[in-house]
């Protein structure tokens, strides 16, 4: 099966003064793939993700996202991506519906499109009756599910997830991953950055960054075999220690 590449990174280097945050990264991500981007705090994950989202330009190298060059066509890139982070994703003091409308408007959905997709989404999440509730009154699990749904409401080609499922119970976490599987099934590429190794186990392929370099890139199963480890946590420890 020939898959379309939605992210291509070639020889990406990013320097801050003398500090090299990203040292010659090379990878690509296929359409509909769930791609894990792992590393310890300060390994350069955030820097790389900012570049991919068009928030920062690489010092050198070629980075293409959704068919556009991030250095010169950042605005085009931004229209085609969704973003969700555990730290911030929804406005707590707005209702569910107000949050959805705000983000839909930001991403240029027309009001008829939004109404159709938004109501669809609420019914699917079983939140239609609760749509006027303030987000602050939802549990963490519901917030995460809602935030993810909002991030893909405009049907982006790629959605970036920053440590999406930390802190929720195992059952809710799995419901969340099922939503991610579904999005991937529908052709949305999912790019997950995290330092929680158990989140990595759910990805199709993962990269592990150490000190600005990519030290490993493969499926979790392959990596575990390669490093003779029982879990991704052990793989990571083998690489980082």
């Amino acid at each position: 099966m020939d898959k379309k590449k939605v992210i291509t990174v070639e020889n990406l280097v990013k320097k801050f003064g003398h500090f090299t945050a990203n040292n010659n990264l090379n990878f690509h991500v296929d359409q509909g793939e769930i791609f894990g981007f792992l590393g310890a705090n300060g390994a350069g994950k955030t820097t790389a993700m900012r570049i991919l989202c068009g928030l920062s330009s690489p010092t050198s190298g070629k980075v293409e996202v959704a068919g556009f060059d991030v250095s010169h066509q950042a605005e085009e890139v931004k229209k085609r991506i969704g973003y969700m982070s555990q730290k911030f994703s929804l406005f707590e003091d707005l209702s569910i519906w107000e949050n959805m409308r705000f983000f839909a408007t930001v991403y240029g959905l027309s009001s008829s499109e939004f109404k159709a997709r938004g109501e669809d989404l609420l019914r699917k999440l079983n939140l239609y009756k609760e749509r006027k509730r303030l987000v602050s009154t939802l549990s963490l699990g519901w917030k995460q599910k809602l935030a993810f749904s909002v991030a893909i409401l405009h049907q982006p080609s790629i959605v970036f997830l920053d440590e999406p499922t930390g802190g929720v119970d195992p059952i809710t976490r799995r419901q969340f991953w099922e939503m991610i599987y579904e999005a991937a099934e529908n052709g949305i590429t999912v790019f997950v950055t995290t330092h929680y190794m158990d989140e990595a186990e759910y990805c199709d392929r993962v990269t592990i960054m150490v000190d600005g370099r990519i030290d490993a890139l493969d499926t979790p199963a392959e990596l575990k075999k390669q490093y003779n480890a029982a879990s991704m946590n052990d793989v990571f420890l083998a690489l980082a220690r």
Partner: peptide
Amino acid sequence: KNNYKSLQALRQWEFCENVYPFGE
């Protein structure tokens, strides 16, 4: 091969008590 489709299919099965993703 496909987690999402397999989950849906197994849930449809009458003998399924519970099925959930666990890593890969």
